[in-house]
């Protein structure tokens, strides 16, 4: 019996090695001398959720700073008020009715066609609209940015090795001294986190660039509405906030996914224990 157990342990070991090696393969590595800051994100871990206050401030940073050049084309305004989203309000289960969301949408002009005349018009945004394009087309975007194309940010945290840490470090590392062997063309900036260390985007954040106000969020445990005081708008603070927001935009269903996962795993765990005992019982008189 011990030998059998040993074999079973070896078997499980094989499964674990196969699994772990696939995880290890999936993890990427850093490349430069700059020491990446590994933040403990609120959404990390098995029970991670988004820090709604940070994500709300992050939206402000996106709106006031990033959205000058970067689109969020896969995100609709109504998404901002979904469950698990930064501006979720339990009073408005349908985010389209949420006045905050309506205001965010109304902040944008949307290119449309007048239904009566067929003329091209600009109208005020509604919650059902997606974040509109910043530039009319790619050529216009490049022309306004010294030939570089500002990437869409909807899935940015998933689209780079290192995820949220990558984005955060990219934003806070602009003041790292440039090594002499890196030659910058006009319009290029040194950034130790960027692939190739050259980036067309100038340092987007500076101390006190946005004026933070206190945020209202639902407490994750008690469900009470509470007010979070405004932090100081340092570069690190703004970078962390906008990263929290872009992380949400990249993975808006993270909270429901992890919550469902917990129930599924618990169910499977209990089922596996029951099946183990059933297996023992069925085989109890059978030598094998």
């Amino acid at each position: 019996m011990t030998f059998k157990t040993l074999k079973n342990v070896a078997f499980i070991g094989a499964v674990v090695i196969a699994t772990v090696s696939s995880i290890a393969y999936a993890a990427g590595g850093g490349k430069s001398d700059y020491k990446m800051v590994h933040k403990h994100w609120h959404f990390n871990g098995l029970f991670g959720t988004y820090d709604k206050a940070a994500a709300q401030r992050g939206y402000q940073v996106y709106r006031e700073v990033c959205s000058a050049c970067h689109q969020l084309k896969h995100v609709a305004f109504r998404h901002l008020g979904d469950k698990g989203a930064p501006f979720y309000n339990p009073d408005y289960k349908n985010p389209n009715d949420n006045p905050l969301i309506k205001n965010f949408a109304a902040d944008w002009q949307i290119t449309d066609i007048d239904a009566d005349t067929g003329d091209a018009i600009e109208r005020t945004g509604i919650p059902a609209d997606k974040f509109p394009a910043i530039f009319p087309n790619e050529a216009a975007a490049r022309a306004s940015n010294g030939g570089a194309l500002p990437p869409d940010l909807s899935v940015m945290v998933k689209a780079r090795n290192g995820g949220a840490d990558y984005l955060y470090n990219l934003l806070i590392s602009y003041d790292t001294p440039k090594p002499d062997d890196i030659e910058l063309a006009p319009g290029q900036h040194y950034n130790p986190v960027m692939d190739g260390f050259k980036i067309a985007m100038a340092a987007p954040l500076s101390e006190g660039l946005v004026e933070y106000a206190p945020t209202t969020v639902e407490d994750h445990h008690t469900g009470e509405i509470k007010t979070v005081p405004a932090p100081e708008a340092t570069v690190e603070q703004m970078a962390a906030d906008v990263t929290e927001f872009i992380a949400w935009a990249s993975d808006p269903k993270l909270e429901v996914r992890k919550a469902t996962g917990l129930k599924v795993m618990l169910y499977l765990l209990i089922l596996s224990i029951l099946l183990w005992f059933t297996y023992q019982r069925v085989w109890r008189d059978v030598e094998h």
Partner: peptide, 22 residues
């Protein structure tokens, strides 16, 4: 299925490439 669910709910992107989100 426990291993499957762990990847599905907690590491859904770990077996793919970041580049495929571009």
């Amino acid at each position: 299925l426990l291993i499957f669910a762990f990847f599905l709910f907690y590491l859904p992107d770990s077996l793919g490439h970041a580049d495929n989100y571009i």
